[in-house]
Design a protein around this nucleic acid. Structure first.
Lengths: 222, 222, 222, 222
DNA sequence: TATGAATGAGCCTTCATTCAT
DNA sequence: AATGAATGAAGGCTCATTCAT
């Protein structure tokens, strides 16, 4: 979303076809992983869901593991790109966090299956994930960390707080909202928790002077 | 703790034995689950690790699933009991949270394998966990929530914050510390993050007036 | 049944005890084999049913197989003894067959579980039965065969019929009645089929002259 | 039989294959069941015998049970079809029974393994067979019963005999021949007993007047 | 004798992956 | 590129049997 519009340069012959199936398989995989869990999911299910034969999966992926990793990477790439684009657009540190939280919970809230895969399945597989994609997670956390560090630099956030720890803390808090949302039955909107979480968090890392000062949730910040 | 000193006499023939093996299997299971992950763990491994035959596992558990559930339940029961005992001992709301955080991270930090199982394996299996033990998780969260609600009642915490949401937020933040600790290689102490997390969190939910005020860790509060 | 009343001679010290359990296990085995089938039956079930511990079974039997063989042998011994006693009492060949059929179907009809074991379980296990107890089956069939041969000798049965084949035929016919009775739900009496079967059979092997002649069921034959 | 001669041309690419393996597995299963017995038979053996991998069995059958049931059903279908065809061809009631007996014993005599499975294995498994295939057995018996009932209608058989009981009796007698043949070592032909059994049986249910009268085996009856 | 906890060999079944078509 | 029938390794679970008590 909000992807940098690719300048239609060059012909780009043989555009979509080959990757159509790859995408279809990834989408099907998300559904199946969400419903059955990674280990219980069968490659044949993914294939059927994607409308291809089981063998075809192996034309696009090295194996079942690779499909999961690819789901992770595709999503993280999008998330990172969106987060980067957001930071480039908004200047106020607090507003940046607020919008990042909305982005995060919004994405998961819109794709429940994706949320399940990320909150539930990817954890359990962390073991083999370590070898592959920890870098992207770090990158994502790094964006939050940098926003906080920048906030400290401009005096909007308390300097003695570790930006790294604070970033993890915010991420963890949002994560818990997502996990909780998945496990609960009530059909409330996940994104609805974003402001409250960020509010508490921002107060928590606000400089002593600003504390108590209403941090203008929606005010003319950016 | 402080078990009633058994008068060293009397028959007491064949007293404890039966549960020795059950505990041994649970401990072994934690090690194996931590190393291989639930689905890749083999019952035979658990048994070997516990020093019993594979079939013996089935004398104490209904199956592999039951072992995992039992690990969860045993640990949660302990955690809940400890948390309850703590709340009964300490009165200051902020101190309660600080001590709960130490308890939480301390326990996981002391048993890395247990931490892995809880942060990684139990997530992925949430699916079948839902049916069994969601109640205990809710109970644990409920303790935190009540502490916050009480803090609000006594004016130590901002009343417009949802105690439920705040509890999840704190839990999620601590959780992320644990997950991050597991995935990182540096041998720092997990419990070391407790104060920083609680500090930010407590500031985040502090009443406007108290913000910035040092939250007298052990002072004569109650 | 109708066992020759043992003259109460001698003290018979230490009478029942030792074999009480053996008998109890055999009886329990019949019930369990009938309900679950030999291969699905568990030794532990038999033991529980007999009111003893699993290990006790091995004090009286070499193993599960031996229990089945013993059930067979105990029953066959009784059947053979009864059949012999009958033949010694009755002289008329036709009446002998009639009474043998009643004995056979009566015994099975009275103990449905025993019938199930004999008609169903013992067949499938014939393989390992061959090695043990084929002899007793032959002995039982031999009694029938001898009755027929005697019937031929006294002119009551057609001489050109093979007594061996005829014996098997009668046995098979009775057997089918039992099998059918087991599989059917209707609570009719198994022994009720005895006369009809024998009637047809006896006519089938009757000398040409006697055919159609009522075979004087109980009349003064001998 | 007498398959329509396929014109030897045309594409006919990949015509039969799919069921080749299924049939091969069924044939192999008969051999293995005959040799080891159902419960002792291993799926892997069946597969090896059929020249396929173990997993392949599960492409054609739901499980081991299903293989046995399928053996039964395939054979019964053939037997019933043959019996029906025979009845449609022959008119004389006695001759019908004679030919049915030959068919029955001939089939088993030609395939000793099949005979073993039918006489031995299928009995012991009657328990789970009840749920599946009792109908076909009844159908088979029904054919015999109808032949007898018809024989009574045309005055060739005694009317006071129950056709159902008589059918079971004949079936049981033939059955015993087969079982006995299996257990015996002598290499005599099983089908050789057919005439003798039918002869006795037919005399047994013959009308008083006809008794003793040679039952014109092939004469112009119908 | 009797017990029953413990053993561990054995096997059915699943399913990721391959490969001939 | 696509298919899907075939493969075969792998592992959870059962249960007959043993043996320390």
């Amino acid at each position: 979303m909000a992807a940098t519009p690719r300048i239609a340069r060059g012909p780009r012959i043989r555009a979509a076809p080959p990757q159509d199936k790859r995408e279809a398989i990834l989408d099907a995989a998300i559904r199946v992983f969400a419903k059955r869990g990674f280990f219980q999911a069968q490659v044949a299910d993914m294939a059927r869901n994607a409308g291809v034969a089981a063998g075809t999966v192996y034309l696009y992926f090295k194996g079942k593991d690779d499909v999961l990793v690819s789901v992770f990477e595709r999503t993280m790439r999008e998330a990172i790109d969106e987060a980067r684009a957001l930071v480039a657009t908004v200047d106020d540190p607090v507003e940046r966090l607020r919008r990042l939280a909305h982005l995060h919970l919004g994405r998961l809230g819109r794709h429940r299956d994706l949320a399940v895969v990320f909150q539930v399945e990817l954890r359990q597989t962390t073991k083999f994930m370590e070898q592959f994609s920890a870098a992207q997670l770090r990158e994502y956390l790094g964006i939050i960390r940098d926003v906080i560090a920048h906030g400290q630099a401009v005096g909007r956030m308390r300097p003695e707080v570790s930006p790294t720890l604070a970033a993890k803390m915010l991420f963890g808090a949002l994560d818990e909202m997502a996990t909780d949302w998945i496990l609960s039955d009530r059909p409330r909107r996940l994104e609805g928790s974003a402001d409250a979480v960020v509010d508490i968090f921002v107060r928590g890392i606000a400089p002593a002077s600003t504390a108590g000062v209403e941090h203008a949730p929606d005010g003319p910040v950016a």
